[in-house]
Design a protein around this nucleic acid. Structure first.
Lengths: 157, 157
DNA sequence: GTTTGTGCAAATTTTTTGCATTACA
DNA sequence: TGTAATGCAAAAAATTTGCACAAAC
């Protein structure tokens, strides 16, 4: 789990990336980086926009989209699609590779890790002559607790 | 590989489903089913709409969305998200479970199958106490041929 | 004859773009 | 000061919805 200590490191990575690419180090970009690294949840652009707005920031959605693009490019943020037509993101620094299990009832997202997925990835790269850069594995289902009791600790309907 | 012989079987499955659910057996629904099972490619709603329009059908996008919903419900069609915010679909009858490898350059989608993914699915279901109904595994990368030669047989730019 | 399903167009939702203004370098 | 980045609002892209009409049952 990344802790608050990682933050100067993350800011440094972003700063270096921006300098390397000849991009400007704007206050907005760092405000967004900070906000993204403050929480451990997956988020979508609109929630982040709303959250930052509620905290008194005056940053447009366009800037958030732009900045997330940069953050993905320097691998500080990862993009996911959990079935809906809404892109979800998460900070990715110091997170070891993991995949997701999505509850189809309460939409809660659990994380897990299995080394076999890396093996499949390398084997398929070999077999199909591909340089595989990344993957996305989502498992979908229902929490057994939810199915039997009709509710679970993550359910909030 | 499903062949043309599967079609009456598929129509039967859809008919039965519609009757079971008390839905009407409209000409539009069967026209869409036929079109979906005519091709082996992944498709999105708009392409299917355009294709059917070009073939002289007079079927609205709303009806296609509606019908695909039904086809997914009776498991004759599967939905995918290959990274973009555009839902892609494919017929799923008589297709054994497979996953996808997406070329980030030409966007060509390859299919593969690895039994380990089923093992991961069951193990994680046990571990996290979930009834996992399905999964989605996408590998992303670049065809080695494309990287070295700058082009490949699937590349069409 | 009911009532569900359809086409159409308008509304929503999510993301992108154009442009005048701001502010980094 | 020159130019990239921002905010805003409009546009685009994908999907959903409301409603009058058509056609299953």
């Amino acid at each position: 789990m990344p802790t608050k200590e990682t933050k100067p490191e993350v800011r440094r990575l972003f700063t270096d990336y921006l300098e390397r690419q000849g991009h400007r180090k704007t206050a907005e970009r760092f405000a967004i980086l900070d906000e993204v690294y403050l929480s451990n949840e997956h988020f979508d652009v609109d929630s982040l926009y709303m959250l930052m707005k509620s905290k008194g920031h005056h940053i447009s959605r366009a800037t958030i989209y732009n900045t997330i693009e940069l953050l993905m490019d320097c691998e500080l943020v990862t993009r996911h699609q959990f079935g809906k037509n809404l892109a979800r993101f998460e900070k990715s620094y110091a997170y070891k590779q993991h995949d997701h299990l999505i509850c189809e009832d309460c939409e809660h997202v659990f994380e897990f890790c299995d080394p076999r997925i890396q093996q499949i990835q390398s084997m398929m790269g070999e077999l199909l002559k591909f340089n595989i850069t990344h993957h996305s594995l989502n498992l979908y289902g229902k929490c057994k607790e939810l199915e039997t009791k009709g509710t679970c600790k993550h359910h909030k309907k």
